[in-house]
């Protein structure tokens, strides 16, 4: 595995784009799914489909898929998994600032452990 300094500008750009798309997409999904006025069952899906959030989430997901394939064509999968683990922290912070999700000590500890675990799996693959 090359040292962090060996990451090329193209790889760095794709990495950043992946973070932005993953975070934006997940926030859009949460905005769609968490809307309390949406109701239940089929009515909920009709409501979600009539507003932009769900489609923004799906669009981000498709774009992220393409960016991820391009990213993995330049670096090994294990390194991709390692770099991708930062998304978990980015989405935690975004949830805190955009949805006011409380970051209790136990939640932060849990999210930090999962992030560390995914990074270690990437390192050890």
């Amino acid at each position: 595995m090359p040292a962090a300094g060996a990451i090329s500008p193209l790889v760095a750009s794709l990495w950043l784009l992946n973070i932005v798309l993953d975070t934006g997409g997940q926030l859009a999904f949460k905005a769609a799914a968490g809307d309390p006025t949406a109701g239940d069952g089929l009515a909920r899906w009709k409501y979600m489909a009539s507003r932009p959030w769900l489609w923004l989430g799906i669009g981000s997901y498709v774009a992220e898929f393409l960016v991820w394939i391009a990213f993995l064509s330049l670096i090994p999968l294990s390194e991709g998994v390692l770099l991708g683990s930062i998304n978990i922290v980015a989405i935690m912070l975004a949830g805190r600032f955009l949805f006011g999700e409380r970051l209790t000590r136990l939640r932060v500890a849990g999210i930090a452990l999962v992030t560390l675990g995914v990074a270690i799996v990437g390192l050890g693959a």
Binding site: R102, L106, R107, I111, A112, V114, G117, V121, G124
Partner: peptide
């Protein structure tokens, strides 16, 4: 390393479950 990573993930999810039951 992969086993260690898997254990960290499971421990983290256990923390999140506990945090949620307290919420």
């Amino acid at each position: 390393a992969r086993v260690l990573g898997a254990i960290a993930i499971l421990a983290g999810i256990a923390c999140l479950g506990l945090a949620e039951s307290r919420e």
